[in-house]
Nucleic acid binder design. Structure first.
Lengths: 228, 228
DNA sequence: CTGCTGGCTGAACAGCTGTTTATAGTACTA
DNA sequence: TAGTACTATAAACAGCTGTTCAGCCAGCAG
């Protein structure tokens, strides 16, 4: 990974090592001694500099977040573009964010929110200038788009295998690009029968409720065989 | 599924408790004592019946996989449909598979493979009968579709928040349904300029390489992302 | 009743891991 | 030189967790 490590401060070496491990193995699976070994220092020094494993994570979160933000707008194509431009680095950071999203950390939430926000802006301007088709729910469309992009990162290994690749890399991403664009350009369904059916179904009265209302749990046949 | 816990064998109670915990917290974060407590037994009994935590996981994997398979074809709409029909149970099992995919376990791989396979079959028959538009790469299109579906499950909490919901539930899923169908029906882009550009770019000679070739790393500009 | 089997438990063990502590080297200053 | 502040380490500590172990007890055959 990071080639030149001699000209970095110990703190930076530790942080980079931690990012690498967190991205590859996840936060919980990573142990401080492994991070220390990768950074070429002792385990105690990690604590000495960062206070605790959680604090270390916070520093890594912030660093990845800022670096990713500096790379430019976190739009849809931009993400794929940056990825192809510099897979090695981007893969690490993006996989880090994938882990962050997986365990629902604040950094992950921030990243998703940012991406959704910028994607929504992109969509709105695209719709405004006529390059994109209008949508009944731009926000949800933005979420859907971000969803798709991020899924590529989060579930990379499984997906790569499904396409016949050993690991997920530029080739797999490129392979996905064309079908994705085809769908985004012409759609998948030949007619709008399904869409119409869905519109009818979703305007069904029993679906009517406020967006922010999350108390109303349905399932009258509640299946509660779990916990205390 | 089984509501009362009294009429279940201890093994089944333990397995169900384990599935709940694995789905909610992930495999590594879950400890045997918590599973045992949920099941109302001692920690030792878990080992007594299953041998080890890994063996317990294997049993859970197999059980979830089989239950999910019994629910019918794991297609795209089917997944959402089943989800809406019985959110409580489906959410648990589907979240379990999300965890399995996240840490790249064999069960997750099996699940993804199965879904991709069945989705591809659905696409091919849809294309054959004219209800779906032909694609240049049906397999990749299937992966893309599965990707999108599974992402909804894996990153549920973050996505729900992006839509303004506290938790991911039927409301959030329904909110996503319409924009998704709109894209799948009419596409997103108003014209095919981007698609054409992508086609040209992807037929560029420097992209030409065998699918299994993953050695060729590009990035002529050295990746210096580490600064103190 | 006796003895045995099998589900089951609580305590103990062993290993890993985050953190603390005592210690030492190093560079810079008064 | 003496002192101070910083960097770094190795060893020890403490908590959690998977696993083992000796034994309890209900049911049941003889």
């Amino acid at each position: 990974m990071c080639s030149a490590s001699s000209d970095l401060t110990a703190q930076a070496k530790i942080r980079n090592a931690a990012i690498t491990h967190f991205a590859r193995d996840g936060f919980r699976k990573t142990n401080l001694r492994a991070v220390a070994a990768t950074a070429g220092v002792s385990a105690g020094l990690v604590i000495h500099h960062f206070g605790s494993k959680d604090k270390l994570r916070a520093v890594c979160d912030e660093h990845v977040l800022r670096t990713l933000a500096r790379k430019g707008r976190a739009g849809l194509q931009n993400l794929a573009h940056e990825y192809l431009a510099d897979p090695a680095e981007y893969h690490l950071y993006v996989r880090y964010m994938g882990r962050a999203i997986e365990d629902d950390s604040p950094a992950g939430a921030t990243f998703v929110t940012t991406m959704v926000e910028e994607t929504e802006a992109t969509l709105r301007s695209g719709i405004a200038d006529g390059s994109m088709r209008p949508s009944s729910d731009v926000r949800a469309l933005a979420v859907f788009s971000v969803l798709t992009s991020l899924a590529t990162l989060t579930m990379a290994p499984s997906l790569a295998r499904a396409l016949g690749y050993e690991t997920f890399g530029p080739e797999a991403l490129r392979r996905l690009a064309l079908p994705t664009l085809e769908v985004y350009t012409h759609g998948l369904y030949a007619d709008d029968s399904l869409l119409k059916a869905a519109r009818d179904a979703l305007t069904d009265p029993r679906w009517e409720d406020a967006p922010t209302d999350s108390r109303r749990e349905n399932s009258p046949t509640a299946t509660r065989w779990e916990e205390d």
